[in-house]
């Protein structure tokens, strides 16, 4: 106590020892040697806590034989047997194939519709903000509300069938389409719901792409006699390639994890006809408690999707890299 008092007495009047230590720490953190390293420590800390530890745990669990409804102490090391089970599971591969089908169809339509909408809104001279806001609304709605709304739309006597009836009845087709209980129609139902909600995002990406195009390039092409189609095809479209690739990558990453509309509309059914891989994993882990199987399947999917996404990123940077190499 005497020592502390003595130290406190050494400090300039009006300061306590705690304040002095705080100032010393602040000075140390602000020093040229320490301060530049702070961001790295924070970023690396976040990576370790949020990515690395869960990733290692997942790999670890994938190498065990363990069900979540049994104590962890009963788990035994099983090597790569879980991977073998995953890779030979026909349901797993069927759900992977279905996921690529859903994601591919939904993203393709979202890209085309989002692009066309962005092109039209970009050309609007009036009410541009109003149209933009309206088109962005679906993206901002909570998925569970979207799922509920679409389940109402899809019921046999619901508004969708009512709308289609005048077009189907003249051809003798029963207008009461069982959107959620027919294996093929249910797939379309899920894809349509995804398209409705996420076209907003591709629209937003393309609209920002169109807005970033320098107006003088278009003017130069107009003065040189280019038609609107030539301007679009030769100037705007090539310059929007990076935006298109970004939209493809972002939407593919999300669509490959498609889960909400499946749970909210069909629960993977009828049968397994709308089971995506995310739903398949959820069922294996949370319904059947097959944690180790789920962990192994997750790692397999991570590798598979990473290859797919990195291929997209490679395409995105390759054009730029070609130009830079020529410049070097």
């Amino acid at each position: 106590m005497a020592q502390i008092s003595a130290r406190a007495a050494d400090l300039p009047s009006g300061r306590t020892a705690g304040q002095g230590a705080g100032r010393g720490l602040a000075r140390w953190l602000a020093s040229d040697r320490v301060f530049p390293k702070i961001p790295y420590v924070l970023v690396e800390g976040l990576i370790i806590v949020t990515i690395l530890i869960p990733f290692i745990l997942t790999i670890y669990i994938s190498l065990l034989r363990w069900r979540a409804n049994r104590p962890f102490e009963t788990a035994t090391f099983s090597g790569l047997s879980n991977y073998e089970v995953v890779l030979t599971d026909s349901l797993f591969w069927a759900s992977v194939g279905r996921t690529f089908y859903f994601a591919g169809t939904a993203v393709a339509v979202e890209l085309v519709v989002g692009f066309v909408l962005a092109m039209l809104v970009h050309q609007c001279t009036r009410s541009k903000k109003l149209y933009t806001t309206i088109i962005l609304v679906p993206m901002m709605i909570v998925p569970i509300v979207v799922g509920y709304n679409f389940s109402m739309i899809y019921v046999d006597s619901g508004p969708l069938n009512q709308l289609l009836a005048p077009f189907l009845e003249p051809f003798g087709i029963d207008p009461r389409i069982r959107w959620l209980s027919h294996p093929v129609a249910a797939q379309f139902a899920i894809i349509i719901a995804d398209i409705w909600q996420w076209t907003s995002l591709t629209f937003l990406i393309f609209l920002s792409g169109f807005s970033a195009l320098p107006a003088q390039l278009i003017n130069a092409a107009r003065v040189m006699g280019a038609t609107p189609w030539q301007i679009f095809w030769r100037i705007q479209f090539p310059l929007l390639k990076p935006a298109i690739l970004i939209a493809v990558i972002i939407r593919s990453m999300e669509a490959l994890k498609m889960f909400d509309p499946v749970v909210l509309l069909t629960f993977g059914g009828p049968g397994t006809s709308t089971q995506t891989v995310a739903y398949f994993l959820w069922e294996q882990v949370w319904v059947f408690n097959k944690f180790s199987f789920g962990a192994a399947a997750s790692i397999v999917l991570l590798v598979m999707f990473s290859v797919f996404i990195y291929f997209g990123i490679y395409l995105l940077v390759s054009q730029r890299a070609t130009v830079d190499r020529r410049a070097a």
């Binding site: 320098p214 003088q216 130069a220 092409a221 003065v223 040189m224 006699g225 280019a226 310059l239």
Partner: peptide, 28 residues
């Protein structure tokens, strides 16, 4: 503009960044 038989040089030049110099000149 394209029907008036004019040529125009813009303030920021407005060269098409994704085309080579050859293709820029050939565009018209």
């Amino acid at each position: 503009p394209g029907e008036r038989g004019l040529g125009m040089v813009f303030q920021d030049l407005a060269l098409f960044p994704h085309m080579t110099v050859f293709e820029n000149i050939a565009f018209g």
